[in-house]
Amino acid sequence: MKESNPDNGGNNTKKAVILVSGGLDSATCLAIARAEGYDCYALSFNYGQRASSELDAAMRLASAFSVRQHQVIPLGIGQLGGSALTDASVAMPESGVVPDQIPVTYVPARNTVFLSYALAWAEVLEADSIFIGVNALDYSGYPDCRPEFILAFEQMANLATRIGVEGRPIRIKTPLIDLGKAQIIAMGHELGVNYGLTVSCYQADSKGRACGRCDSCRLRRKGFDDAGIADPTSYVSR
């Protein structure tokens, strides 16, 4: 576990747990939560992902946003295999996202596991919200990024927790779910997000430099182009 500013915050402030991967979307979610007046508690995971430099990015973001606390939880999801994000023997797709097709970059049950940890921490903190940067437009192939999954998880969360059954429901907030990448970038830009701190590449090197070829790099680059905002990404090939 790594922490920054472990102060638990004031008793009268509203609290939120924000899932922070180190990427563009989670950085924008963090900015939105702060703008909405939440005391922010950042949660990241070392789950065996190939781009481990994204955890360095998550720590940079937690520091930049002066979160109340940042926890990095080790998980063994990568040991199970089944995804190009955790298994180097699976070829990383570089041909672009195929609509309505679950890509090999899908990590089985990842968001279910991540949200479960976020739910546990939210209950401990007595936080009323969890923010997650899922996006149904750019990642429609991921079943755990869809609105119906989020709704089902929220319903389960409020049946399975003490604070839920005591009438203090936890909300799963997905402010980016219906936005395109350009809209997300424009929103974050308005909120002062420094996207140069983020790492989105599925196979970034140890310095956080992006490959420029994977699906995530393609979506990110197109998003900046469409938003008319300079891309601050550091690429290996540049």
Rank of each mutant, 00 (worst) to 15 (best):
S83C: 14
G141N: 04
D128E: 13
I73F: 07
E36W: 11
R68D: 00
N158M: 05
R34G: 11
A118C: 02
D225V: 03
R50L: 14
G10Q: 14
R220C: 06
P143F: 09
L75Y: 09
S129T: 12
N158H: 11
N46L: 11
V90C: 08
A88C: 02
F224M: 12
S52Y: 04
P74M: 01
V134A: 12
I177K: 12
L191R: 06
A57D: 07
V124L: 15
R110M: 05
V134H: 03
R34S: 15
P103I: 05
L179K: 09
Y195H: 07
G96W: 11
E94I: 15
F149I: 07
S66E: 15
G180V: 10
V17S: 08
H189Y: 14
E190A: 01
A186L: 10
P232G: 12
I229K: 10
A64Y: 12
L80K: 02
Y195N: 04
R110W: 07
I77A: 05
Q101K: 13
K173W: 00
V17E: 04
I163G: 10
S83L: 14
L115C: 04
H70W: 15
V113T: 12
A127Y: 09
Q69R: 15
T233C: 04
I170S: 00
G167P: 07
N158F: 10
A182D: 14
G81Q: 02
Y41I: 04
P74Y: 01
A118K: 00
K207P: 00
A136K: 08
L125F: 11
F65K: 01
D144E: 00
G78Y: 11
T86W: 08
D56W: 10
S140D: 14
G96R: 03
R221N: 13
Y38W: 13
G23R: 01
Q183R: 00
T112Y: 08
E3I: 15
I229Q: 08
E123L: 07
L61F: 08
Y38S: 09
T161A: 09
S44G: 02
Q183Y: 07
C214L: 02
V134M: 08
A58V: 08
S116L: 02
L191N: 03
K2G: 10
K222Y: 12
Q203S: 15
R146H: 03
G82R: 01
L151H: 10
N194L: 13
